[in-house]
Amino acid sequence: MKFAVIRFPGSNCDQDCVLALNALPGATADFVWHKDTSLAGFDAVVVPGGFSYGDYLRCGAIASFSPIMQAVKSFAASGGTVIGICNGFQILCESGLLPGALVRNKGLHFVCKHQHLRVESTNSRFTRAATKGQVLNIPIAHGEGCYFADDATLAALNANDQILVRYCDNEGQTTEASNPNGSRENIAGICNETRNVFGLMPHPERACDPALGSTDGLVIFDSLLKC
């Protein structure tokens, strides 16, 4: 499986993604520049974390108008696999590929720590190698990770089983204390209705090597590689 890792000016998790993916059997990853217009030859797209275009205007807003994002939209529309991590999640929301938006953390602080997540659904190509209710330990690092959607959108996300991961404590309880940023319903990651686009604030690519303290992020990439 060949992954395209998109690089915007200000991306800073692109190298981590390429490194993590290239270490997996059956996966190769290459950088794709934001001015490129084609994703030909790639099987999946990673929109990595960072501060694309300096987070000007709104996080991810400028990136969503870049040439490569027009190609990512077509790729997603034809059923291609797209995963957006952190700033990548913000970009996918700004592009309209995922519902809702990410706003300033409730506590105003930039939060950088290991965080527990509960797998809410394994009915996706991103979580099928996990078990429902599995608790993952994956780092977060963001200032604007508070997921917001109106009541109707939230109801639809729940009804369609689109919420794939929620913030929780080490026992898997989705409490207010375990919500690091004020996200509605402790939402950490969602997929689109057709289940081929996934966005999450936590960084699975930073949890793929025992030297980094956790390998729980592997389950996301293993899910993608498991056909």
Partner: peptide, 13 residues
């Protein structure tokens, strides 16, 4: 302006 229904922690601070 942020919608009234959206949390505005900057405004609160």
């Amino acid at each position: 302006m942020p919608k009234p229904s959206v949390l505005d922690p900057q405004g609160a601070a």
